[in-house]
């Protein structure tokens, strides 16, 4: 196990920690908006760390660029969809 692999595994576990925290947060929080809060954290940061860990493990530049592209799309998608869901919940009054 080269030091690079150990570092990558550590980053992957950190990303996993954010995913688990986001899921637990989504299950336990009382209303829609706080669940959204937990969810978008897990999405953006958890996936960023997992993408970074994956990029470290595969030393190929084209793969790394594709991983960055995926993460960029997911950040855009989860930011806008978090806002859209919150507005929808606010409008139809189911939120609180």
């Amino acid at each position: 196990m080269t030091p690079l692999e150990i570092l990558a595994i550590g980053i992957l576990f950190a990303g996993l920690g954010f995913f688990v925290a986001g899921t637990v947060g989504m299950l336990r929080f009382p209303d829609v908006f706080s669940r959204l809060h937990a969810l978008t954290k897990a999405d953006n940061l958890g996936l960023a760390l997992i993408a970074l860990g994956t990029a470290l493990l595969t030393a190929d530049t084209s793969v790394t660029l594709k991983l960055m592209l995926i993460w960029f799309f997911v950040v855009l998608a989860s930011a806008t969809s978090g806002h859209l869901i919150a507005r929808h919940a606010l409008r139809s009054g189911q939120g609180s």
Binding site: F19, G22, T23, M26, V32, R35, L36, L39, A42, D43, G46, L47, I70, V74, S78, S81, G82, I85, A86, H88, A89, S92, Q94, G95
Partner: peptide, 17 residues
């Protein structure tokens, strides 16, 4: 509410990625 189901679907998508 529907919004809860939709945000869960959002999390499932990201977890699959």
């Amino acid at each position: 509410s529907e919004a809860d189901r939709m945000l869960a679907a959002q999390l499932l998508g990201t977890t699959t990625v």
